[in-house]
Amino acid sequence: MDIPIIVLENVTKVYHQGKIDVTAIDGFSVTVNKGDFTALCGPSGSGKTTILNIIGALDVPTAGRVTLEGNDLAALSRTALSSMRRDRIGFVFQAYNLIPVLTAYENAEFVLALQGKPEKERRARVMEMLQEVGLEGLENRRPEELSGGQQQRVAIARAMVTQPAVILADEPTANLDSATAAALLTIMEHLNTVHGITFLFSTHDQRVMDRARRIITLRDGKLAGDERKG
């Protein structure tokens, strides 16, 4: 039984660069269901980041409609969008992921603190999540004291710890060596199957695509393929 969680209808995004208009997304429609483990593929410049940003309400489409868990993003206020990002979405960006002055533990805890969760609950959840992503013992390190892969895992832990409906990850393995990338994917798969969290991640990497259960391909901002495995 498929429950749609992300629905994009005819989404278009045009960037104005001086006098030139760049159409990053061109009439793109797709539905992502609850529990999907989906890769968003396509060559550089095809619009992967733009799509993720639009779904995460960090960017607004020029035309078309985006709904997340049934809510039309265009109809939500700034504050409502802030709390939606805080409570329902987990973000993993390609870079500048973490807050540099906070430790791994504090970064992972940050959103829970924003939500006003009590200290005890925060501690339990963060420790559990850091353990799941294999960072126990590194809680007190700051981002600059962690490797790229470890930072990315902190970002995943931060995204996961609130048990959001959806995790949006923009090339989560791009800066990682293949062993680390494979380990990270294992963690993501585990979280997906155990906690039922929907993943949508962009990637260039064939090995990552091989492990996705659904592959959506973009070309020039248009849907060029949608393949389900198994």
């Binding site: 802030s82 709390s83 990002r85 805080r86 973000f91 960006f93 807050i99 940050f110 931060r158």
Partner: peptide, 16 residues
Amino acid sequence: IREFGVMKAIGVTPPQ
């Protein structure tokens, strides 16, 4: 500014 961008992206409100 970037740091604040990250904060806002993960749900910190403008008044915060």
